[in-house]
Design a protein around this nucleic acid. Structure first.
Length: 455
RNA sequence: GUGGAUGUAGUUCAGUUGGUUAGAACGCUGGAUUGUGGUUCCAGAGGUCGCCGGUUCAAAUCCGGUCUUCCACCCCA
């Protein structure tokens, strides 16, 4: 007895209607990327585990899918390691490949490996799926697509400005209302420095990040729990209570950070970005949010996060600047900045808000009813002609199938026109064209048919 | 990884304190209509009640395990 087929947890099949909508998102994003001069690359689904481990923090390592070695890997494994039953050590013995967790780290690897073939600053885009062994929920999958743009080999803040423009253009095209939240790791480092806890920066940022969600009191509790002295937590309070416009916030934070060189550098970077952005008439709101932390620990400068305004969903796009990602792979001092659009979450948001254009559902424009082999033979050259004109056309493949069945098929597939060619039409060299929406039909010539369908 | 909910026809869901042969709507197939779909009418097919085990004379219903989906935490696109 055949077992019920299924797919792994957190993965999905996509049917035709879903794919049409997904492609709409991919095409839109891709068109904007190209418009700004980015070039496409792809990298393998698998990377060497050594390239992936340690880049996403401790949590990230756990969420990596590891691929077993090929062959009789167990016989080669060290017995003492196996008997220890330590998962991490055993993994090292039996797995040396893993599925990519994001597109940024493979990109850094790519840049280092191909540095001599690339023209810097290198602007690339990459649209591929990534895998995370997370527990699935709404808007969280184990396999999902990221659409990344990065520019590497330039530390100009113009790139940050460009990324904001790209975000604006993409969401304007998709008709999704969003807010771009921005922060800077240097400011966060400065804060840690000023309160005398520079090595606690990760704990501090992770806790501050939750301000919206759990409130000030709980954040303070968590900070104390993580081993921060009370006086340091106290010093942090004015920062968490910042308010006003971006400029006002920066003004206040500058005061707090006046002792910290890094911190002031961060503030200055933000000021520059906002200054250059101002005359560009970007409609999307860009908000300085000092509670924005982002977990990925390779970020060193600007960090971005984009949230949909009209739907409840985690961040749908995120990124930032990384000063030394390529350093780990042997190419130091190359700065990059990029951002990643989460296609699956964007899809969920657009589905919720009903933002997909209706006509994307149509594929074939006209279907020829198949009355029999003789009629079929007459129709095929006509269909060829239509296709040469770029008109999507097809014929029902079963010669002489019941009319009702054929019409039903066209209707179910949302094909807007049906052509009927039987004895009468062949005799007079015409085609009876039926408009499925209006239900009207008329006899016309092939030339007229092309004209009507080309509209 | 921790805690909670969920699973019944292709789909969305009913199903009483455990009690004959598990239902509805929509969809599907055939017919009314042999050159006309979307409306209507008639008929029909379709279920190991997620999976495995246990309690019971008897389990969709109670218990345990497991998997899926969803929710919260963690983290994130």
């Amino acid at each position: 007895m055949a077992q019920k087929p299924s797919i792994p947890k957190g993965t999905r099949d996509f049917g035709p209607e879903t794919m049409v909508k997904r492609n709409y998102i991919f095409d839109t994003i891709k068109s904007v990327f190209k418009l700004y001069g980015y070039q496409p690359i792809e990298t393998p689904a698998m990377e060497n585990l050594s390239s992936l481990m340690g880049k996403y923090g401790e949590e990230g390592d756990k969420l990596l899918f590891k691929v077993l070695n090929s062959g009789d890997f167990m016989s080669k494994a060290d017995d003492t390691v196996l008997s220890e039953k330590n998962s991490i050590k055993v993994t090292n013995q039996i797995s040396e490949k893993g599925l990519r967790y994001d597109l940024t780290v493979p990109f850094a690897r790519f840049v280092v490996q191909h540095q001599n073939e690339l023209q810097f600053p290198f602007k690339r885009y990459q649209i591929q799926n990534v895998w995370r062994a997370d527990r699935p929920q709404k808007g969280r999958y184990r396999e999902f697509y990221q659409c990344d743009v990065d520019v590497i080999g330039s530390d100009s803040l113009l790139n940050e400005v460009e990324i904001i423009q790209i975000v604006n253009d993409v969401y304007k095209k998709l008709k999704v209302n969003v807010v771009v939240k921005m922060n800077n790791r240097k400011i966060l480092a400065g804060i840690a420095e000023v309160i005398g806890q520079p090595d606690k920066i990760i704990d501090i940022t992770v806790a501050i990040d939750k301000l919206d969600k759990i409130g000030l009191d709980k954040v303070n509790e968590e900070l104390v729990e993580k081993g921060l002295p009370q006086e340091a937590v106290d010093k942090l309070q004015p920062i968490m209570n910042l308010s006003g416009t971006n400029t006002e916030k920066l003004q206040q934070i500058k005061e707090v950070l006046k002792e910290s060189e890094v911190g002031l550098k961060g503030v200055q970077e933000m000021e520059t970005v906002f200054y250059w952005l101002a005359p560009l008439n970007v409609e999307t709101e860009v908000e300085l949010d000092l509670t924005l932390a982002r977990g990925l620990n390779y970020y060193t400068g600007a960090i971005f996060e984009v949230k949909a305004l009209d739907a409840q969903m985690g961040s749908i796009t995120g990124g930032g600047r990384y000063d030394d990602l390529t350093g780990i792979f042997g190419l130091p001092n190359v700065s990059g900045v990029g951002i990643s659009f989460g296609a699956d979450r964007i899809y969920d948001v657009m589905e919720q808000l009903n933002l997909f254009p209706k006509d994307t559902a149509t594929t074939t424009k006209i279907m020829f009813v198949n009355f029999g082999e003789k009629e079929q033979t007459w129709c095929l050259p006509v269909i060829n002609k239509l296709r040469q004109q770029g008109i999507a056309a097809e014929i029902y493949p079963q010669a002489g199938a019941k009319m009702k069945k054929q019409m039903n098929y066209a209707n179910a597939r949302n094909i807007p026109f049906v052509a009927l060619v039987g004895d009468n039409e062949i005799e007079s060299s015409t085609i009876t064209l039926k408009d499925m929406d209006k239900g009207e039909q008329k006899a016309i010539s092939v030339e007229e048919l092309i004209q009507i369908l080309n509209k």
